[in-house]
């Protein structure tokens, strides 16, 4: 099995993978970073979204080996020195989560959205930009509110 190394949440990590090992499998099974979830097998639900080299991607649809040497950030790497990221804070403040399963992907998608589009986001933009993330609990109402507030405070 080939060994790969990459930076995950600021730490250098390495591990053996098969060619077929998905990035999400590497993160969950090899590194124990179980905050990144798998909610579907057709690359649609977005529960697995992480940042690879600064961009939001679906880690269920990327080979780990293809991400060798990349800089990966997962939900576990968002809070810094025990201080929550403003987007995490906003999800709690605005009740943007219920069961919590889609939440890591939602938050990672939201942070990426702000990076690309800036801190001032209107409701239509947020809703449109969330089309790669499915939530079954919240009806999106409070997620939209959370993203808007989180963006403003980033």
């Amino acid at each position: 099995m080939p060994a790969i190394s990459m930076k995950v949440n600021g730490q250098a990590v390495c591990g053996e993978v098969e060619g077929r090992t998905l990035l999400v499998e590497f993160l969950r099974d090899k590194l124990g970073l179980t905050g990144t979830h798998v909610g579907c097998d057709t690359s649609q639900c977005g529960a697995c979204v992480v940042h690879v080299d600064g961009k939001a991607v679906k880690s269920c649809t990327a080979l780990a080996i293809a991400c060798a040497d990349a800089d990966v950030v997962t939900i576990e790497g968002l809070a810094k020195n025990g201080k929550l990221h403003p987007m995490q804070e906003a999800f709690r403040e605005h009740h943007g989560l219920q069961c919590g399963f889609c939440t890591p992907g939602m938050i990672m998608a939201a942070v990426d959205m702000v990076k690309r589009l800036g801190k001032k986001l209107d409701e239509d933009t947020i809703r449109h930009e969330l089309e790669g993330n499915i939530c079954r609990c919240t009806g999106y109402h409070n997620i939209v509110a959370a993203v808007k507030a989180g963006a403003a405070s980033m």
Binding site: T34, G35, E76, L84, H95, F101, I107
Partner: peptide, 18 residues
């Protein structure tokens, strides 16, 4: 505000597959 949220927003929930 929900007491359970901290673990979910930091990726520290413990679901069965975890």
């Amino acid at each position: 505000r929900r007491k359970e949220d901290h673990r979910f927003i930091t990726g520290k929930g413990q679901y069965t597959d975890d």
